[in-house]
Design a protein around this nucleic acid. Structure first.
Length: 205
DNA sequence: GAGTAGATCCTCT
DNA sequence: GAGGATCTACTCA
């Protein structure tokens, strides 16, 4: 690619089309850096959550609670939330403050800090479940609800663009998964995955 | 390989 | 007190 990697800045996150942002996040690199350890991975699966009109969103119908508060935060911040009592899910906040748009990062292709990820998860090298699925991903990267509300444009969590682009025929668009209770909105084509990547969630849509 | 149940805890009703 | 933007292990075939 030959391009200098650039950290995504506010002008990437503050756009209105959360579905477009979710699509563009494919191929970007998510990096966490704390305790002197750097871990990173290329994003290969995302889902868009489109605010108060989206039944699958925690903010559906204008619910604004302690849990979903960070969904309403500034663009370019994180929203980490615990599901089923044990899984941390990492989201990127988009659009603008008070608009609860977010992109759930569902899977990564690990690049740096794999040793550390293996230690965090207790898995062994070559295990594709390491960063497959939002719960595993957060555990491997060391993300927890302590990191909810953190800025992604400075500090310890950020996303860079190294110029890598997936071609149109490498990207598959499907409906979202794991949100059966969202009824008809579960059918929306808001999930983006990279074709053939072994770290993409195995679960069928 | 497909289908199902259990784990486990925070949040909302 | 119920249920969830999930994962794993176990069953059956």
């Amino acid at each position: 690619m030959g391009r200098v990697p650039q950290k995504l800045n506010l002008s990437f996150y503050n756009r209105k089309d959360v579905v477009l942002i979710a699509r563009e996040l494919l191929g970007k690199i998510l990096i966490t850096q704390w305790d002197g350890i750097r871990s990173s991975g290329r994003i290969v699966e995302t889902e868009a959550y489109a605010g108060e009109m989206d039944r699958a969103s925690h903010a559906f119908g204008g619910r604004r609670t302690t849990r979903s508060e960070h969904l309403y935060g500034d663009p370019g911040t994180s929203y980490v939330y615990i599901s089923y009592g044990m899984h941390h899910l990492f989201n990127v906040i988009t659009n603008k403050k008070d608009i609860p748009h977010g992109v759930l990062i569902r899977a990564l292709d690990p690049i740096e800090g794999i040793e550390q990820m293996l230690i965090r998860t207790g898995k062994s090298y070559g295990d594709f479940t390491l960063t497959k699925g939002p719960g595993n991903l957060s555990r491997a990267m060391g993300l927890s609800k302590l990191h909810s509300g953190m800025s992604l444009t400075s500090g310890e969590i950020f996303i860079i663009d190294d110029g890598m682009r997936y071609k149109k025929d490498q990207i598959i668009v499907t409906k979202r998964i794991g949100i059966e209770s969202a009824r008809e909105d579960a059918e929306l084509p808001y999930r983006f995955i990279v074709k053939g990547n072994p770290y993409v969630s195995a679960k069928k849509s």
